[in-house]
Amino acid sequence: MNEPLSTLEAARVDDDVAHHLHPNIVRVEMLSNWIVTGILCTVLAVVVTSVIIKWDLGFAGRMALALPAGVFALFLALFSHYWPAIEYRCRTYRINAGGIEIQRGVLWKETLYVPRSRVQHTDVNQGPIERRFGLAHLIIFTAGTIGASVRLAGLGHDDALRIRDFLVASESGDAV
């Protein structure tokens, strides 16, 4: 929360430079991952413990149950902790006069371009955790099929609003 809330220092939104998301997104995602992991691990622990208490499995049986569960929980925990930072490096956006380009994906990479003239409407939403860290996510709606809605998370709230204003401002004689 100490970083400035804007990663778009320039006066113009359409600077045609690839920006990283706001660094706080790593913490936001870590936090929400941890919550999910916590719930999953609790459920797993309860199930495993109750099975062990209910049936007499012997030492080998207990290990055969507890060990995979433990490995799974460890994997979840590691994933929750490190994945957001790994993913962060692969996520950028770039805005030029024509529209917005979003890059994402660690293994399966995708780059997509939404021309400004194709934006139908936009949403700027804030979840509770995002609000705590001053972030917001922008959803861009187009008339397309697979790109009917394009989500860009991890923007400072002010940046999201500025980008939204930029994207929807081009209503010049649209759609007749």
Partner: peptide
Amino acid sequence: KIQTVWLVQSPFDRRWRMATLIIDTAGVG
């Protein structure tokens, strides 16, 4: 009539330095 343009690469695509280009339009179910 192009709505959005997507450049998609799977890990295998990257290994071979290839990519898939998707052209998204309205009304294609």
